[in-house]
Amino acid sequence: MKRFRPDPFVTVLILAVVAASLLPVEGDLARVMDIAAYGLIMFMFFFHGVRLPGNAIFRAFTNWRLHGGILAVTFLLFPLAGIGLSSLASAWLPAGVAAGLLYLTLVPSTVQSSVAFTAAARGNVAAGVAAAATSNIAGVIVTPLLVAGLMGAASVGAGSEGVGGNATLKVIGLLLVPFLIGHLSRRWLAEWAAARKSLLGITDKSAIILIVYTAFSAAVLQGIWIQLGPPSLAILVALSLLLLGAVNLICWYGGARFAREDRLTFLFCGTQKSLAAGAPMASLLFAPAQVGELLLPLMIYHQAQLLLAAFIAPRLAAPPQSP
């Protein structure tokens, strides 16, 4: 039963949504919290750069078939599925939530969980580290470009400012630049960061919780729970699970030509979507009132992917039974 317990971090995120629903923050306090969130985001990506070994990036180019396939699933197959899914959902869900289904398909893969599940299934862990790192580095640039190309003002509902070059530059300035500076600082800070991995992990999670709380506060003030009742929420969960199941089947059977270890890496790195990267990017790319609706599908998918991967990883690791 432990495999089916909600992830503690996701539980805290749910509590943040509940808190924002009951006590939404607004006005000057909301602006102060936004500034604090931006500071934590820059801090988070700086230390992501510090902690990422350079050889993980190098390995991404030595197995180009595997990593090319993972990137194609992450930034091509997923967005194509997201376009169709969000169009289908627009008939039943509020515009911002339907657009959130598209947004979740545009963000990069996870890092920690995809590598952890690859290891649990006895896949190619070194390739998993390289794939996750490459996906997140590429996502800082590719995700804003995909959002700009696929999510115009009409896609995210009334009052949208749209997404363009300025927003992309903002993401690069607040995410990629601190990441690169952090990576260049590895020779001085890598050991210090490794010794404080738990503390830095708390900082990462705190940034995301703050983003979710402020985003849902704005969404609540805009009437998200009036627009999204239980039937709509059930439809959203069903569509998220449909996407998750379809992508897992495609990756598993599509990776049949890989060696078994690489096939498992392809499965767990190709199907995961990162809330840790998606939440900061959404806060930078969209107006505050839109972020809560846009993140809701990603939060649902994130929890579902953890439950499914936790269920199948040990089963795939088991040796095949003799007939």
Rank of each mutant, 00 (worst) to 15 (best):
G255R: 04
W252V: 00
L244W: 05
A256K: 14
L221R: 14
A277Y: 01
I226D: 14
E293H: 13
V237S: 09
A234R: 14
I224Q: 11
P280H: 01
A219E: 03
L264E: 03
A289G: 05
G245R: 11
D262S: 13
Q222T: 12
F216R: 09
C251N: 11
Q272E: 14
A276Q: 13
S232Y: 09
L239N: 07
Q290K: 15
L284C: 04
V220G: 00
L295F: 01
G292T: 08
A276V: 13
C251A: 11
Q227H: 15
F266G: 00
Y253I: 02
A219I: 08
V291H: 01
A282Y: 02
A219W: 03
L298C: 09
I226K: 14
G229Q: 15
Q222N: 15
V291Q: 09
F268K: 07
G270F: 05
L294D: 00
W225I: 01
P231D: 09
A282E: 02
S232L: 14
S217Y: 14
V247G: 03
F266W: 09
P280E: 01
A287G: 05
G254H: 06
G254I: 07
L295R: 04
T265A: 11
P288S: 07
L298N: 06
S274A: 12
A256H: 10
S283W: 04
A256M: 06
T271K: 08
D262F: 07
G255H: 06
L239I: 11
L242G: 10
L275Q: 06
I235T: 15
G270Q: 10
G254A: 04
P288K: 03
P297S: 10
I224M: 09
W225R: 12
L267I: 13
D262V: 08
S240E: 10
S283Y: 05
L241N: 06
F258A: 08
A287F: 01
Y253P: 00
S240H: 08
V247A: 05
